[in-house]
């Protein structure tokens, strides 16, 4: 028993080191003064100069602004579509075309991005040729592209939340005189709101990080942050990107730790009350 525990603990230690050493190295070197990234400049480090450079890099800032717009619009649209889809799948056990619907909401989760991206672009080109819409590509087509795969993630999150949701709570509201639409907005939505919020954040991140689908569906002049980063990285290591990585990781950590803390606290409250 103890031998196996030792084995499992070794695996955990190795696994977490594997996950975090690269991330840590990026963070550490983002404070390195040397242009050579991996050569530590003892004389001038640590320094915040790359953060300063990042915040004055017009190309990166412009791309980040586009990414932000796309990510917010995508997250909002995905949450609407994904919540509807997740609700439909969780609440209507049988309807015509349910299997096809399940397949369509699951496939984007695993579909290689190059395939999704290519097919979306070809669709937009074909549509433009035949009906004149969308006229050219840009932020709009990118949002559509991102929503198509992000909503699948939201669907999963919402559906699994609803699966553990006591349906009789909705029935009780209906029993007390609320119509189905009202029940959804007054009872269901507030209760599953944390899951919906998690879905929004997930969709936001997916969009914010996406390179491949953006590359296919973006038009000229609508380069997103990952597209700019990718072209910089292809040319070699760049300390500004380390600084960007550090900012990203900090933001994600704050959000994730905050969310975990909030849910843990809510759970503790519920547990202490039930006892």
């Amino acid at each position: 028993m103890s031998r196996r525990s030792a084995f499992v603990i070794t695996c955990l230690a190795f696994g977490y080191a594997f996950l975090y050493v690269p991330i840590a190295s990026m963070v550490v070197y983002s404070f390195n003064a040397s242009q050579l990234v991996t050569v530590w400049d003892h004389a001038h480090s640590p320094t915040l100069k790359w953060f300063g450079a990042l915040l004055h890099d017009q190309e990166i800032l412009g791309a980040a602004w586009i990414s932000l717009k796309v990510a917010v619009a995508n997250a909002t649209g995905s949450v609407i579509l994904g919540t509807l889809a997740g609700y439909g799948l969780a609440r209507f056990p049988r309807f015509r075309g349910r299997f096809a619907f399940t397949a369509m909401t699951t496939a984007p989760l695993v579909m290689p991005e190059v395939i999704t991206g290519l097919s979306l672009l070809l669709l937009f080109v074909t549509l433009e040729q035949t009906i004149g819409w969308p006229a050219g590509r840009g932020i709009g087509t990118m949002i559509i592209g991102h929503m198509t795969f992000s909503m699948a993630y939201v669907t999963v999150v919402v559906q699994s939340r609803l699966a553990t949701f006591d349906r009789s709570v909705e029935e009780a509201a209906m029993d007390l005189g609320a119509r189905p639409v009202k029940v959804f907005f007054v009872i269901t939505l507030p209760i599953i709101f944390p899951a919906v919020l998690a879905g929004w954040l997930l969709a936001f991140t997916l969009s914010w990080d996406d390179l491949v689908i953006s590359s296919f569906t973006a038009g000229p002049g609508s380069n997103t942050l990952p597209m700019v980063v990718f072209s910089m990285v292809r040319l070699g290591v760049n300390p500004e990107i380390n600084a960007l990585a550090t900012l990203t990781i900090t933001a994600v950590t704050i959000l994730a730790v905050g969310a975990t803390w909030l849910t843990a606290r809510a759970r503790r409250h519920a547990a202490s009350a039930a006892a």
């Binding site: 991330i23 190295s25 991996t38």
Partner: peptide
């Protein structure tokens, strides 16, 4: 939740 692109870039370094 952290960008895949950035995490791959870390390995380049």
């Amino acid at each position: 939740w952290t960008s895949q692109l950035l995490r791959i870039y870390a390995w380049v370094g």
